[in-house]
Simulated assay, not measured.
Amino acid sequence: MYLNKYLSCLTLAVLLVSCNLDNKPGKYDNEENVAKNNKKNATETATKPARSKAPIVGERINGAATILNNPGGEPLVTLVDYIPLRCAPVKKDWYPVSVDFDITKDEFSKPLFHKGRKIKVNGVDAGVLQRDIKLPVATNGEKMWATINGYTQKKSIRNGTIIESALSSYLKQHTGRSAADMEPFIHNFKLEEETTLKPYVLYFNYESGIDDPSPLYRLALVFQGKQLIGVLHSRPIQLDGGTPRRLQRGFTVNYLNGIDKSLKEDFAVKFNKFILSVD
């Protein structure tokens, strides 16, 4: 499905986890309060949502952060501002997190890392290890990385890079609900397309994989034709108006106002059947 590519003003500008972090903008335009900084931009973004140059996958560090082995526990690594990582659902103001950093061939063979080692993420300086630690390593044939799993405080994650918060803000700022209206958001968070549930099309991302090695959907925009009819989600999300309905396997769909009752029922039946068939 090809959506219209248009519009040039600034909104939701964010960076892809795998991109060069040197492209980090001076202002984090995906943040909820960016419009307050410039009245002209606020007026423009209210009517002209735009694609960022590079999408984002996962969350970003807010200022600086320490990853601990347990909530309130011992430090594993300190990270600098805007470093990408994955977050599982928050638990009592702590996020379970996972971050990958670049390693050498020798480290891939002997994955014991020492306190004080400076780490890089996608070639960019990212922080320093705070203890000697043995870590799982992996490769895709092109690069090698080690993975640190731990916990960080809720305040250490940029709110504008959390997809649920970003979507809530986007829907408040932009009134359009067509596929073209939502295309910048789809692009900016690199949502994938699912067409199994015809006549519905889902644009979705997966859960972090921290809690489950076979993650399901985290959030999905549900379209019928070229119109958004609802938001499917596994984590809490604040959406104005709409009608929530619980589905199988812990999912909820928030239907937009004015959606026909028969359409709501049809999607719920199809999705429940589909998600129960997924391993």
Results as ranks from 00 to 15, higher is better:
108 F>P: 10
174 H>F: 15
243 T>D: 08
179 A>Y: 00
229 I>L: 11
224 Q>F: 09
228 L>Y: 02
27 K>G: 05
13 A>D: 08
6 Y>D: 13
187 H>I: 11
278 V>P: 04
52 S>F: 03
141 G>H: 07
237 I>T: 01
240 D>S: 10
123 G>I: 11
16 L>I: 04
233 H>E: 10
274 F>W: 11
208 S>A: 15
247 L>A: 07
137 V>T: 12
22 D>Q: 15
232 L>G: 03
113 F>H: 10
58 G>L: 06
166 A>G: 14
102 D>C: 14
36 K>S: 13
14 V>G: 02
115 K>V: 04
134 K>C: 08
264 K>E: 13
28 Y>K: 11
6 Y>H: 10
116 G>C: 13
119 I>H: 01
30 N>M: 14
43 T>P: 00
145 W>Q: 04
190 K>Y: 08
266 D>Q: 07
217 Y>E: 12
237 I>H: 01
272 N>E: 05
11 T>R: 07
265 E>V: 15
56 I>G: 02
186 I>E: 06
145 W>F: 06
78 T>H: 12
208 S>E: 07
4 N>E: 13
175 T>K: 09
62 N>I: 04
176 G>H: 11
105 K>P: 02
249 R>K: 15
175 T>I: 07
132 D>T: 09
190 K>R: 08
240 D>A: 10
132 D>I: 07
14 V>M: 12
213 P>C: 04
110 K>E: 15
54 A>V: 03
77 V>S: 13
256 L>Y: 07
149 N>D: 09
2 Y>I: 14
276 L>D: 10
164 E>Y: 00
23 N>W: 00
49 P>F: 07
66 T>G: 06
166 A>W: 09
214 S>F: 13
105 K>L: 14
30 N>T: 01
140 N>A: 09
277 S>R: 14
183 E>T: 04
77 V>P: 08
35 A>F: 10
188 N>P: 01
112 L>W: 02
236 P>G: 07
135 L>P: 03
130 Q>F: 00
189 F>Q: 10
191 L>I: 09
39 K>R: 08
37 N>P: 02
78 T>Q: 05
128 V>M: 15
172 K>Q: 07
172 K>P: 01
91 K>Y: 01
265 E>W: 02
52 S>E: 07
200 Y>Q: 08
186 I>F: 00
17 V>K: 02
25 P>D: 14
27 K>S: 04
234 S>E: 11
97 V>C: 12
112 L>E: 15
45 T>I: 05
41 N>W: 09
192 E>T: 04
239 L>T: 02
258 G>H: 09
227 Q>D: 06
4 N>S: 12
14 V>C: 11
265 E>F: 04
10 L>W: 01
224 Q>S: 13
199 P>Y: 06
107 E>V: 14
259 I>D: 11
203 Y>G: 03
279 D>F: 08
43 T>F: 12
170 Y>D: 14
218 R>A: 07
181 D>Y: 04
122 N>L: 08
92 K>Y: 01
247 L>P: 04
162 I>G: 05
188 N>E: 12
158 R>I: 00
47 T>N: 10
168 S>L: 05
35 A>R: 05
144 M>W: 00
264 K>Q: 15
237 I>E: 06
44 E>C: 14
60 R>T: 03
278 V>R: 14
208 S>V: 11
244 P>G: 12
196 T>V: 12
164 E>D: 03
32 E>V: 13
252 T>G: 05
191 L>F: 06
32 E>I: 15
115 K>P: 14
222 V>M: 03
101 F>P: 08
79 L>W: 03
233 H>L: 10
250 G>A: 12
163 I>D: 00
